[in-house]
Write a protein that binds this DNA or RNA. Structure first.
Lengths: 231, 231
DNA sequence: CGGCCAGTTGACGTCTTTCAACTTTGGTGG
DNA sequence: CCACCAAAGTTGAAAGACGTCAACTGGCCG
C-alpha cells in the first residue's frame, strides 16, 4: 500500500510494527472518536475513508481532512497525550490499525525510522493546513473548490479513460472542505460541466480537463475578455 | 520569562539548553529567513516580535502567526529537516536564540522533557491552526476580528487601568491575521469605539470591554433590535 | 411504487471588498 | 523647535460575490 508511515522500513520492521497494532473495523457512518476525547492512539487507514471534522457551536461542520487508505491521523494528539482535536467518523465501511501511545514510543526506540516517518507526516499535515489557511484567507470560492478537487484527485482519485474520477463524496462534503456552501458547489460544478471541464453525478465528479480547471484558478475576477476601449 | 520551551526544566538543564543556542539580533524590518529556505534551526523569541507570513502568488500576505517573547517557531520544519514553510521577519528590534537540528537532537537525548515541550508546542500550534481554519470557513468578518483581538490580548496584551492594550500592530496586520481587508478592520474598530468596546489609535487597540466584544461574537446577523412589525 | 436523500436552480438580500479621496499621526532633518 | 513627509488610518459610494431560502427534479432503495 505504500503507506508513508511504513516507508523505508525493512520487511521485519514492518511486520513488527503491524503486529503491535490493534485492528478495528468501522461500519459506514460509525464514529471512531469525538473531539476532546482523550487521545489514546494513532490511527492508520487500511481501507475505506475516515472523515475528520470540527463542529462549530452553531452546528456547522468543517472537514479538516478526509483520510483514505494509507493515511494516518491523530499523530500529534497521541504523541502529546492530550485530547483529539476533531471528530473521526467513517464515511464508508473501513478498516484501521491503531497504536497506543506507549506501544508507539516503544517502537520508536527500536525503529528510529518510524519516528522519522511520523514526524514527516505531522509536518506534511501542518503544511497542508497552512496552505488551506492561506487559500481561505485570500482566494475566492471557485479557486478554493478547484484546489479541493485537485487535491482529492491527487490523493484519492481513480484514473479512468475520460479523466480522473473522485467519488464517494457529496456536494456538501466538497463545500465543507472548501469553506463554502452546498449551493455554491452545485452551481460551480454545473457551470464547469457546461464547459466540459468536469462531468458529475450523484456523489461523483469526473475531472476531464485538469489543465482547464487549473487555468480557472489564475483568472479569478471579471476577466472575461476585457474591453481595451474602456481605458 | 516562563517560555513553554523551558517549562519543567531544572536550573541546570535550562542553563545547558540556553548555552547550546546561538544568539541573534534583528533590526526592525529585518528578515530572518524566507519561505522554502532550508530549515536549519528552531527559534525562540527573547525580545521583540517576529511576523511569520505566507505570500500568495499575487503578492497578498497572510500572517500565520506573530511570535512574541517566549514564543517558538519553525519547530516542525527543523525536526523534519526540510524547508521553512513561511517567511520570518522582525516587526520590531528583536533578540532570538536558535538551536540547530543536531544540537537539538543531542539535547533531547539528555533532557527528554525538552522534547516533550517541543511536542506540546507543535501540538498547540496545530490546534490553533485548526481553530483558525474553522473560523475562516464558518464565521463572518466581525467575529473573526474579535477572535484575533482576544487572541492577541491573551498572548501579547498589556493590562492597563482601562483594559488590555494590544499595541505595535497595524490595521493591515490585524486584517492579515483575520482574513479580511484593512478597510473592514478600520470600519469595525470605528464602530466598536463608538460603542465604547475599544479605544484605538495608530498601531494600538485598547480593549475596554472584553465581555462586550465576546457578546458580539454570538450575535452575528442584522440583529439590531429587530422590528417585530416586519413579520 | 413510494419516499427519501442528493442535487439543481432562481430570486433575493447583504456582507465585503474595491477604489478613491481625505485626514491624522509621528518621526526626522533643517 | 518647527515644518514637512511618509506611513497609517478613515470614510463614502458603488459593485459584486456569496449565502440564504424555497421550490423543484431525479435517482435509488426498500
Amino acid at each position: 500500500m505504500g503507506a508513508p508511515l511504513l516507508r523505508g522500513l525493512s520487511r521485519e520492521e514492518r511486520a513488527r510494527v503491524l503486529k503491535a497494532a490493534a485492528s478495528r473495523r468501522l461500519r459506514s457512518g460509525e464514529a471512531l472518536f469525538h473531539q476532546d476525547d482523550p487521545a489514546n492512539a494513532l490511527h492508520l487507514v487500511l481501507e475505506g475513508r475516515i472523515r475528520l471534522t470540527q463542529v462549530t457551536a452553531e452546528g456547522r461542520e468543517v472537514i479538516v481532512r478526509l483520510a483514505g487508505p494509507g493515511a494516518v491521523f491523530a499523530a500529534i494528539a497521541v504523541l502529546e497525550g492530550t485530547t483529539y482535536p476533531f471528530d473521526a467518523t467513517a464515511t464508508q465501511a473501513s478498516r484501521l490499525q491503531s497504536w497506543e501511545r506507549g506501544v508507539l514510543r516503544e517502537l520508536f526506540r527500536h525503529i528510529p525510522r518510524l519516528e522519522q516517518n511520523v514526524t514527516a507526516i505531522v509536518a506534511s499535515h501542518s503544511r497542508e493546513m497552512l496552505d488551506r489557511l492561506r487559500e481561505l484567507s485570500t482566494e475566492p470560492v471557485p479557486q478554493r473548490l478547484v484546489r479541493t478537487l485537485l487535491r482529492l484527485a491527487e490523493s484519492d482519485g481513480r484514473p479512468q479513460a475520460e479523466g480522473v474520477l473522485v467519488d464517494g463524496i457529496t456536494r456538501l462534503e466538497l463545500a465543507e472542505l472548501s469553506g463554502t456552501t452546498l449551493f455554491s458547489v452545485s452551481r460551480l460544478l454545473s457551470e464547469w460541466q457546461a464547459q466540459r471541464l468536469v462531468q458529475c453525478g450523484r456523489g461523483r465528479v469526473l475531472i476531464r480537463d485538469r489543465r482547464g480547471l487549473e487555468r480557472l484558478r489564475r483568472v479569478p475576477p471579471g476577466s472575461a475578455p476585457r474591453d481595451p476601449t474602456a481605458v
